[in-house]
Design a protein around this nucleic acid. Sequence first.
DNA 1: CTGTTAGCGCATTCAG
DNA 2: CTGAATGCGCTAACAG
Lengths: 357, 357
Amino acid sequence: MQCLCETCVADLNTGKTMTTQQKHVTIQHIAERAGVSISTVSRVFNDSAGVKESKRQAVMDAAAALDYRPNLFAQGLASGQSMSVGVLTQNFGSAFYDGILRGIIAGLDNSNYAPLFADGRWRLDIEERALQTLLDRRVDGLILVGPQQSADLLKQLAQKMPIVIISRIVEGFEKFCLTVDNYDAGYRATKYLLDRGHHQIAHITGVLSESRVLRDAADRFAGYRDALLDVGLEPDPDLIVEGNFRTQSGLLAIETLLSRGRPFSALFVANDQMASGVRLGLYRRGIRVPDDIALIGFDDQPHSAYMIPPLTTIRQPAEEMGSIAAEAILNQLDDKPFSLPTMSAELIIRESVKSIY
Amino acid sequence: MQCLCETCVADLNTGKTMTTQQKHVTIQHIAERAGVSISTVSRVFNDSAGVKESKRQAVMDAAAALDYRPNLFAQGLASGQSMSVGVLTQNFGSAFYDGILRGIIAGLDNSNYAPLFADGRWRLDIEERALQTLLDRRVDGLILVGPQQSADLLKQLAQKMPIVIISRIVEGFEKFCLTVDNYDAGYRATKYLLDRGHHQIAHITGVLSESRVLRDAADRFAGYRDALLDVGLEPDPDLIVEGNFRTQSGLLAIETLLSRGRPFSALFVANDQMASGVRLGLYRRGIRVPDDIALIGFDDQPHSAYMIPPLTTIRQPAEEMGSIAAEAILNQLDDKPFSLPTMSAELIIRESVKSIY
DNA sequence: CTGTTAGCGCATTCAG
DNA sequence: CTGAATGCGCTAACAG
């Protein structure tokens, strides 16, 4: 456990290990122990050049014996790389983000890059700072999930390093965007209800405001609209309410909807959180699901499978997106070609949608 | 936007800005621009010594003009500090962890330290690697949430840097552990049911296995047991089932419980996830909540308020714990005293528990 | 193949 | 108060 080579002993005498609170093994130490120069040590670790097998082995042994850990600061300073890719999300706690993170971890697993996570908590100021800490750490690549930053800034970033933007489309920048086809998903959800014989289908949307950079809500809404139009049905404004993706707003929205008095037999809600609120609202009113109203959500939140009755919903392939994003970053770092597909969401049919026949 | 001082021009001529893909402003540059030496620049940023106000101002101006960002690698290499605290969790996606992270972000907000997140995904091997990436980045402090590492390793870490362990008690190391009083919470949940007139109270526990380092499940169970004993009731083995904290296991557990045929009017479930499963199982059997069986969960997961009926549950003060942990780390870094309380959980009473009177 | 050397950007002595 | 000089640990030419 105690190395007695010249360098180490010198360290001991200078009391260096005392001051620096930590005896950190450096290539200096293992060079000494292996009887080679530090460059050779560096070489075997980066195999940046041929090294005689015997020396190579000696270095490896010494490194193992001393439990060497490279100093990333030194490496980064000297090489300009950090061997890490930054991941910025909006809310660690959501199932969608969590799945993406899982995918990224897996995707980076066999590379030399480590993920560095930061979270914006849906607040622009926090997101800004989080992004800054990532950049300050000189991440070599960036995976941004639903970033709220301006398109300009994003393009600027992309010029400096590999980047992947998830869940948002930046115009003229589609090459770097990985998204789910929300339009298609909305269309299919609605089509499904139509096929089951429903004609009066209400919709609770997500946040639609023009200024919003994320178009998920608008796309789902458009899909709903077009599905109706395609079978000759005119979307009824009275059957449409804008929510804000949060549970509470689902509860409010269903109240609004019911108070308008316009009858409907099915309801497509833009996400499961709001669907939870809706479900509670319907329950309070004594309206049965799916007997009185068919309900379909979006996101396949873990608990949606356990709602009563189980909610029919749409699953975004989060984990897969994470690993695709990671792979794309690695390819960019490697100057290899890459492409980001538009993912398609999957309709998860559970018992809560019942035919009105 | 373009600095024309000697240093910068030299950089331009050497083509340095071209090779290094990025024109990074260094103290060199701002020293030149402000007409001082780099040491002076360094001094004003660290106010490690008095600097004449005029020069100080000049430096600040130059820094602002050039949009200077210190190179953390260089700083870290030279100072031995990273100005960051590592945060290791088991699952970003859970509400409890998410709350803690929120608290940590807030707690670190006004310090010079930035959080660095890593996640173990409940897998020891991943946790190990995550911890390693944190250490490799030379974090100055460590907040570990429900770590599975050996007590030895944790103590070893604590010797090298400030540390806070959340949700786990390491023997002889309580000073660094921040926990919720699960025993008390379990006791009170059960007591509440007793007070409402229930005498046959079943319990679905979390993971109890001896080897488990986390004692949350066992503590909640003990609280349940003692609450019964204290009113002269003998815990009935037939009314106790071990689950694994996951939704699915709640569904299985309630099936097991019902199949035993032993009657009960109330049920305390060790977490909300399992309670969701239970709720579904009861629904399928046509058993009403709370009319037939009173239900109480644990964790106050977001959707528990929207279950049908809303689940009575217990809230752990996650966010508060996060900021307390952050504060404790900062104090340790500052060599100031600190203490980590045992937090007490809060019983959130909703409609799912009804008196039998 | 291998050792020597020069920085990477900054903090920190050490002399003024 | 302030500038010059040294070194943190490592990579990347540069000469053998």
